[in-house]
């Protein structure tokens, strides 16, 4: 198969050196790169292909994998000794696709049931389509040019901003002091806040009437959160309020 200049690279199970040697930037392994668009790839082949989880060998001295072609080049120029380092295998979902987004992938994994990733991806696709439809209608409804410019049409941007807006700053942790359990406000790490925001969004999306699809409700929730409105934002404010009320217990976090 011959492919156009910008092609797709994964580094699953390969080290950097071999990648560079084999292809000088133009390559290579397609089967993994397409896991982003599994449904789009030849359907029958994907049906026949079954993946058994293999044991992943990861030694401490392995460098984290780089799966973007330009990134590999940049890294090699920065640190030439990387050519001789062992590189860990990339995750199966990671690809150098132009449309790959780690946060979206995380979100897709979180809405997934029973490992049905194709279904989860399809749901996210339709959710994004719904977002675009809703925003396009708004776009055409506004007549003012400056107001038109302010309508965000990019579903990925809406998604990222929505997660950002839903991130809590504080959380409550139960801490036992003198036989009494106190709900103590603590600061949350960025990673945890991100996870919480996404979990809240998904729970809000799942809270719906029978026969309304998740893909429709999640689209509405994401747009609402993008505009700092909606149930998830309220939930965040409620938590912050609770933390504020329990301010007096804050010292239990570090004192006895």
């Amino acid at each position: 198969m011959s492919f156009p200049t910008a092609s797709i690279v994964t580094s699953r199970g390969l080290c950097l050196a071999s990648l560079i040697c084999s292809s000088s930037g133009n390559s290579l392994l397609l089967s993994d790169a397409f896991c982003q668009h599994r449904t789009a790839f030849i359907r029958n082949i994907s049906r026949l292909r079954t993946r058994t989880p293999k044991k992943v060998y990861w030694f401490k001295r392995m460098a984290p994998p780089v799966f973007d072609a330009t990134e590999i080049q940049r890294k090699l120029e920065e640190t030439p000794e990387a050519r001789f380092m062992k590189v860990g295998p990339a995750r199966i979902h990671e690809s150098s696709s132009a449309f790959y987004d780690p946060l979206l992938n995380k979100f897709t994994n979180m809405i997934m049931f029973k490992g049905q990733k194709e279904l989860a991806e399809e749901n996210m696709r339709l959710a994004f389509e719904n977002i675009k439809k809703i925003q396009m209608e708004k776009y055409h409804a506004t007549t003012d040019v400056t107001a038109k410019m302010r309508v965000e049409l990019n579903p990925l941007k809406i998604f990222h901003q929505a997660v950002e807006n839903c991130k809590p700053v504080l959380a409550l942790t139960p801490i036992k002091r003198g036989g009494v359990t106190y709900q103590v406000p603590v600061s949350v790490r960025d990673k945890t806040a991100e996870w919480t925001a996404m979990k809240w969004l998904i729970l809000a999306g799942r809270e719906h009437e029978h026969q309304i699809h998740f893909r429709e409700t999640i689209a509405k929730e994401l747009i609402a959160a993008f505009q700092n409105e909606g149930r998830v934002i309220k939930r965040k404010y409620d938590l912050h309020k609770q933390c504020e009320a329990n301010k007096a217990y804050a010292h239990y976090r570090w004192s006895r």
Partner: peptide, 11 residues
């Protein structure tokens, strides 16, 4: 971009 177009074409 050219990369995006190529990917859409191939996929």
């Amino acid at each position: 971009t050219q990369k995006g177009r190529d990917e859409l074409k191939v996929v």
